[in-house]
Amino acid sequence: MKAAPFSYVRPDSIAEAVGALGQHGDDGRIIAGGQSLGAMLNMRLVMPKVLIDINRIEETSRIDVAFDHVRIGATVRQCDAMADKRLHATPLLSASLPHVGHYQTRNRGTICGSIAHADPSAELPLALLVSGGSVELRSRKKTRVVAANDFFVSTLTTARLADEMIVAALWPTAKPHTGHSFAEFAIRSGDYAIVAAAAEVQLDSDDRVVRLSVGLAGIGERPVLINTASFEGQKLSADVLDAIETNARQGIDPVNDLQASAQFRTHMAGVMARHVVFEALNRARSDVL
């Protein structure tokens, strides 16, 4: 399996990269770590005319900490982020990274690349969605920030336009008294999840929910948030956990495949949602104390 022929450009700056994208449009494709795109190129699932290699751009390799978010540049590798202590500020990102691929693929794979690829079972899109994060897109003409919930459209499909480059992912800093949890069920270590779930729970001093965000991946064409609006201001009793488990199984459309039936995935969606909310709740409580 060899990639179809492509021309290669290697920009040294974001300006050059978006210039090349603007010039080539749908014929151009950005490669960062290439741990998803490389396989798609070799299998000729994608055949861009021009490959735009952003790996040598300096300005995208940084992690910047602002007062309310951590900004992860387009070429920040997963292994480097995992080793960076500043990611304590974004515990859900830290918790999800060890589940992404393998030791060897994390050496080269990037956080933004996984988000750009938008596999419906992937961990980082789910974590970004549950964190309430967003994606910074740049074209020759403008920069815009798109919330994760609007960014992920469908399988391998995002709101990114053909002339736009993802220059960074923006991860909100966890608020005080917040607990988080990330869990996935997969047949083998390093596989994409059959079902993955993530939760963030923020409590007030009276143990009531200030914010509850729960999401699932592997259960449809994109990661989804479970409806939790009715639980705000409540205490997370066993009844509420039951309701979360029920809500998680509603409105999802998992596939049948060789690994798991749709029925099994639906069942697991409830189990996993309950598990991550419970774990996040306990972490939030220990943070309050």
Binding site: G38, T105, R108
Partner: peptide, 13 residues
């Protein structure tokens, strides 16, 4: 210094 799969990288990179 880092373990990388060489089928996922092009020589030119």
């Amino acid at each position: 210094g880092r373990a990388v799969r060489t089928c996922m990288m092009f020589a030119i990179q």
